[in-house]
Simulated assay, not measured.
Amino acid sequence: MSLENFSHSEKKDFLVSSASLKDVRAFSRDVFEKFKIDEDLREELVLAIAEAAQNIVKHAYKDMPDTQDKMVVRISCNDDVLEISFFDKGKPVEKSKVKHRAIDDIKPGGLGTFFIQQIMDSINFEPGKEPWINNLVLTKKLKN
């Protein structure tokens, strides 16, 4: 399927919880299948989305383990540009503190930001519009 002049958007809200991450991945896979995105790229994108959602749970809601807040994941495709937006009401993101650990520091965890940077073309923290505090936008130019 050519993505030329193709425009579509889907969004879903998820409870801010590690238990919701499997649902975030399933939603993402379903949307990418509808968009007819190549399976290899689809799995990379699902990884980036899962890592971003995990970072929201782990960092934006740190010290709020019993929250009933929801985060929204919106996946849009306009022509050949994929945009994935995350909205949450957690602690405001301090952009200067968003970084991955050293790659040669062999230990589990801490590489989610690195994977996202490797997979996506751009990562932007935009001001959240009411009622949201954070709005993370990931974009990827798709090849036809």
Rank of each mutant, 00 (worst) to 15 (best):
S2C: 00
S2Y: 01
S2V: 05
N5A: 15
N5I: 12
F6Y: 15
S7N: 14
H8Q: 13
H8M: 12
S9H: 03
S9M: 08
S9P: 00
E10Y: 05
E10L: 03
K11C: 07
F14T: 09
S17Q: 02
S20L: 05
L21V: 03
L21D: 01
D23H: 05
V24F: 04
A26I: 01
A26H: 06
F27G: 00
S28I: 10
V31W: 00
V31C: 02
F32C: 02
F32N: 03
E33A: 07
K36L: 09
D38N: 08
D38K: 08
D38Q: 04
D38I: 05
E39G: 07
E39P: 02
D40A: 10
L41F: 00
R42G: 03
E43L: 09
E44T: 03
E44A: 07
V46F: 12
A48T: 12
A50F: 15
E51M: 06
E51S: 13
A52R: 01
A52G: 08
A53G: 09
N55Y: 07
I56N: 08
V57M: 09
K58E: 08
H59L: 08
H59Q: 11
A60K: 04
Y61M: 09
K62G: 07
K62R: 11
D63V: 04
D63K: 06
M64Y: 12
P65V: 06
D66T: 13
D69T: 15
M71A: 10
M71R: 06
M71S: 11
V73K: 02
V73G: 03
V73D: 04
R74N: 14
I75G: 00
S76I: 01
C77M: 09
N78D: 14
N78A: 10
D79Y: 07
V81G: 01
V81A: 00
L82S: 01
E83K: 04
I84Y: 00
I84H: 02
S85C: 03
S85P: 01
S85M: 02
F86H: 04
F87V: 03
F87K: 06
D88A: 14
D88Y: 13
K89V: 11
G90A: 12
G90M: 12
P92L: 06
P92T: 04
P92E: 06
V93A: 04
V93I: 11
E94W: 02
S96G: 11
K97C: 04
V98R: 10
V98H: 09
K99S: 08
K99V: 08
H100Q: 13
H100V: 09
R101E: 07
I103G: 02
I103D: 03
I103F: 08
D105H: 15
P108I: 15
P108G: 15
G109M: 12
G110A: 10
G112C: 09
T113C: 07
T113S: 06
I116V: 15
Q118I: 03
I119D: 08
I119T: 14
I119G: 13
M120N: 09
D121K: 03
S122L: 05
I123T: 07
F125K: 05
P127H: 09
G128A: 13
G128T: 10
E130K: 15
E130R: 14
W132Y: 14
W132K: 07
N134L: 11
N135R: 15
L136P: 02
V137R: 05
T139C: 07
K140R: 13
K141S: 02
L142Y: 05
N144E: 06
